[in-house]
């Protein structure tokens, strides 16, 4: 493989530090098959365990992004293959929004408390839980507790509160970046889907709106995933995070 492409496998922060000299090394000694595998393995290592000062931040946002991707795909799969009962969304949606809020708060306080970077895992686990529990619940036909119309309204208020809090917090931190902007857009998209879905459930008559809401919610997660996976810690206000 072309040395430039091999170097391109590494994270941007890594390339910024080691890219030129690593390219020179690969040009001095063009890699064979085994060396190519070794370089690819090194790239995976650099993605999973970044050694740059902002490495922990990168690792957690990347894991969170992959989790958000899993959540979005799980939600779409659940919708496409199991055609859910709207009531079954209570648990996964609640956890999904709660994790958006946790992640937003986490990102906001990260510059002053970098030691708490591990909180990013709350997003990862919560996001995956949201998507996977959606699939499981729709598969086994389990209906979570439904508190009636008042319960639903309270639930909707909680979801909106959680997601708005998280989205605003994160948007403040990352707004100057394109990926940050995507997160700021993706979260409201997820919220719109959620509200549409909940409105349909409350009225009991707008099934189509509810199903559209699920799809929008899942797409929102996918946008969030993209934004996290492309987020650069040295961009915009995130440059102060390390």
């Amino acid at each position: 493989m072309n040395p430039h492409r091999l170097v391109g496998l590494y994270p941007a922060a890594w390339r910024q530090r080691y890219g030129e000299e690593f390219l020179a090394l690969l040009e001095d000694q063009p890699p064979g098959a085994i060396q190519t595998i070794d370089v690819a393995w090194g790239a995976i290592d650099a993605h999973l365990f970044p050694q740059a000062p902002e490495g922990r931040f990168r690792m957690f946002t990347r894991i969170a992004g992959i989790a958000a991707l899993g959540a979005g795909v799980s939600l779409l799969l659940g919708f496409l293959f199991f055609i859910p009962n709207i009531n079954e969304l209570t648990v996964p949606v609640f956890y999904g929004m709660a994790t958006v809020a946790l992640f937003g708060i986490h990102m906001r306080q990260l510059p002053s408390r970098p030691g708490l970077a591990w909180l990013g895992f709350a997003f990862a686990f919560g996001g995956l839980f949201s998507g996977m529990s959606f699939v499981v619940l729709t598969r086994i036909g389990m209906i979570p507790t439904n508190g009636g119309e008042l319960g639903w309204l309270a639930g909707i208020a909680l979801w909106i509160g959680f997601s708005a809090l998280g989205a605003v917090m994160l948007a403040i931190r990352v707004f100057p970046t394109i990926s940050g902007l995507a997160f700021a857009i993706g979260s409201p998209i997820a919220m719109v889907g959620l509200v549409a879905n909940s409105a349909a459930t409350t009225s009991g008559a707008l099934d189509l709106l509810g199903q559209v809401g699920i799809v929008i919610y899942a797409v929102g997660w996918l946008v969030v995933a993209w934004s996290l996976l492309t987020l650069q810690p040295n961009e915009g206000v995130l440059g102060t995070a390390a």
């Binding site: 890594w14 080691y18 690593f22 090394l25 060396q35 690819a40 393995w41 090194g42 650099a46 050694q51």
Partner: peptide, 15 residues
């Protein structure tokens, strides 16, 4: 020592 392994070690040692 493969180039990927080498630079993984260099990055860790430098950090």
């Amino acid at each position: 020592l493969g180039p990927g392994t080498l630079y993984a070690a260099l990055a860790r040692l430098e950090r």
